[in-house]
Simulated scan of single mutants.
Amino acid sequence: MLGQMLEKVYGITAGEYMRIESYDAFRGNGFYYIVANSRGKEEEEAAELQKIAAHLTAYGDRNVPAILPTKSGSIIADWEGGKYCLLALGPPARQGQMRLGRKLAKFHERGRMVPFQVEKTARIGQWKNMWETRLDQMERVWSERIFQPASDEFERIFIESFPYFVGLSENAIQYLVDTELDEDAEMIDGGTVCHERFSEGSWGRQYVLKNPMDWVFDHRSRDLAEWARGRFFHNSRTCGPEIAQFFSDYRSIAPLSKFSWRLLYARLLFPLHYLETIETYYSSNRESIQKALEDRLIAILKQTSDYEQFTASFFATAGSPFASALPKPEWQANR
């Protein structure tokens, strides 16, 4: 089916079918053609990401694929009700003993050099408005449900837990505002190529593949915070040494300013993990997905105290040279 898409939409003869990481792929003409979901990107966003990918490749990143246009010149292909992008890469590199902190820092340094104004995928400086909008939308959902019986267990847990996470969100937004007022941004704080949600597996487990459809243009602290959040929820008991090593490796390539550390911290404080679980539950109609999200919500609530402790000690854990000089929210001051 996807082989037909390559031939009809792209004019490429599909070769041997294979799977590369979680992607459908075809080998032929000396390339690996990787079929990627467009992730809801509009045509203009995808075109901008195509230019960013070409820039990173030109600056020496061999694991960034090219985004190929269709025969009609568009970046996003419509095929049997789905929207796709076609990525082309030489033989993908196998994951080795990769020091991910160093690799991410080098990726960010290349991303800083994008030689044109990024507009459609830019998120830098927009966190406050985006967080407030997200919180307002969820507050409306919560308000609609609070005065009627919960329809299921997930909804009951959501109704009971939401006020606590509103408090965390408001603290994070205030910390972000204070950061932007108190600290001067430095050269290192310019926008760069980041990911929607960077994690340990974002670039693959077996092969290295950096999918441009995962990218946004933002402050580097976005990726650092989301990686650290992910490691906490992967294993809250053992993530400390891993986080220390990662940040040490990262800072050996790109030292972080006080502004960077505080922006990173604001993002860790903002409970995206909770909000996304609620949003995904109410936007899904598959029972198996909803059950998994219910389990995830229960796990998040069980770890609220651990997560508070994680954020309270984060600067020290990550080895920030400014640890003693960086402020924390009032509720953390005595932890």
Rank of each mutant, 00 (worst) to 15 (best):
Q117I: 05
P212G: 03
S320L: 04
N37E: 08
E80C: 03
Q148R: 15
G201D: 08
W131A: 06
E21Y: 01
N171S: 11
L104A: 10
D152I: 06
I298P: 07
I52G: 10
E242I: 09
I300F: 13
R205E: 08
E294M: 14
E44P: 00
R112T: 05
Q95N: 09
V64W: 07
D189H: 01
E200P: 00
K8D: 09
W142I: 06
M138R: 12
A299R: 15
V114H: 10
S151M: 08
I34P: 00
W127M: 12
H55P: 05
D295P: 01
T280L: 14
S324N: 09
I157W: 04
E21A: 05
N285Q: 13
G60T: 08
R19F: 00
V64G: 04
P163Q: 11
W203M: 09
L264H: 11
S221R: 04
F247L: 11
R134C: 06
A77G: 02
D223L: 10
R19M: 05
Y164T: 09
M130S: 07
Y274T: 04
F217D: 06
M213D: 03
I188G: 00
Q95Y: 06
H108N: 10
R110A: 12
A47N: 08
Q95M: 13
F147L: 12
Y207R: 06
E155T: 05
D182P: 00
A333Y: 00
Y17M: 09
V216R: 08
R231L: 09
L56Y: 12
E119T: 07
T317M: 13
D249I: 01
T70G: 06
R39E: 06
R197E: 07
R94Q: 10
F31G: 00
R251F: 11
H219Q: 02
N334P: 05
P163S: 11
P329H: 02
S22R: 13
E132W: 12
I298H: 13
M5Q: 03
V193Y: 07
R262A: 01
N235R: 13
F246D: 04
M187A: 13
E43H: 12
D184W: 11
D218N: 14
H108T: 03
L168M: 13
K291D: 14
H219S: 04
M5C: 09
S38H: 07
A66E: 13
K302M: 15
H108Y: 09
L224R: 01
F310E: 08
R140V: 08
